[in-house]
């Protein structure tokens, strides 16, 4: 960095200390939210994916289904390549499980041997891959459609309602975080631009003199763009520090209240890549915001035409 740039930076800090600090604070807040979003997105997806892993695929059989039909359904499920396990649950086992779960609350009827067993036999299959997107959900729907048309199958259950909700929840989360991030980053451009504009206003006369003695536009704009980039970078470094402090605080709470989401161990801090993204966003948006506010100064002829 040339001494010309260093002097320019030092002057901005001296002459516009208030603006610089305000800019730094607001930008740090903005980038902290951006970083928290990246953090939340990574972990939210992790949580939802784990949830999606537990989707149960149950195939209820007709009481009248023949032994051959039952074997055919089992073979179909096993050969589909979608499940890591396929377990048969007989009518008796189902009633047994039901009684255990209900305990003394189970309806009288079920305990009445005269009445018979209304629960159907079924296959319980565990998915090989969790539902983590619309497309993996669609695969599930398609599979269910084919299973239900097999002879001897009465119904198929795979948490239709909530799986659908879950898939759209993922989508809503992804979309809204992109919108919020865009708004915040656009705001950061304005904030940096504003700080740089203050610096420019304070040295209009000087910039004109530099131009009159042969300064190129980049000689004039360069230090201002570097200044914006440094404010952005500095703010992003501060925001990562702030996120780390928040993260440690969250970990401590999670440890003290065991079972707090049951996730304390699974939630990790921002990855190296994510930290690099935040730093680059700071640097890049700082430089861009600054560039946008100086692109009309020092254009060669424009000694009189100013921003």
């Amino acid at each position: 960095m040339s001494s010309h740039m260093l002097r320019s930076l030092a002057r901005s800090w001296r002459e516009h200390t208030g603006t610089q600090i305000a800019t730094l604070v607001v930008l740090t807040g903005t980038f902290t939210i951006v970083a928290l979003f990246l953090f939340a997105q990574a972990n939210f997806v992790k949580i939802l994916t784990r949830w999606g892993d537990n989707v149960q695929f149950a195939v209820f059989l007709e009481d009248a289904a023949s032994q051959d039909q039952v074997s055919a359904v089992k073979a179909f499920l096993e050969n589909s390549g979608r499940f890591k396990s396929v377990d048969f649950v007989s009518k008796e086992k189902a009633a047994e499980t039901f009684r255990q779960q209900m305990g003394n609350n189970s309806p009288e009827l079920l305990r009445d041997p005269e009445f018979g067993n209304p629960l159907p036999a079924s296959f319980e299959a565990r998915l090989l891959e969790g539902v983590d997107s619309k497309s993996s959900y669609d695969v599930l729907v398609d599979l269910a459609g084919r299973v239900i048309s097999l002879p001897g199958v009465n119904d198929v259950s795979y948490g239709q309602g909530w799986v659908e909700n879950y898939a759209s929840l993922l989508k809503v989360f992804a979309t809204s975080s992109w919108i919020l991030l865009s708004v915040l980053l656009a705001g950061s451009l304005l904030i940096v631009g504003n700080a740089i504009r203050a610096a420019v206003q304070g040295r209009r006369d000087e910039i004109e003199i530099l131009e009159l003695f042969g300064a190129t536009s980049w000689y004039v704009r360069g230090p201002l763009i570097v200044e914006g980039a440094l404010i952005g970078l500095f703010a992003s470094i501060l925001s990562i520090g702030l996120c780390f402090a928040l993260f440690q605080w969250q970990q401590k709470i999670a440890e003290e209240n065991l079972g707090f989401w049951g996730l304390a161990k699974e939630v990790g801090f921002l990855s190296g890549t994510q930290i690099a993204i935040v730093l680059l966003l700071g640097l890049g948006f700082g430089a861009l915001g600054s560039y946008l506010s100086v692109r009309r100064i020092a254009t060669g002829w424009a000694a009189a035409e100013r921003i």
Partner: peptide, 26 residues
């Protein structure tokens, strides 16, 4: 017909004493 980028090139070839000096005050 001087292009914008030629303006500084030209100004480096000439020397000007302005009536109001135009010194950098700071």
């Amino acid at each position: 017909n001087l292009k914008s980028f030629e303006v500084p090139q030209f100004r480096r070839r000439i020397g000007v004493v302005y009536q109001d000096f135009r010194l950098l005050k700071k």
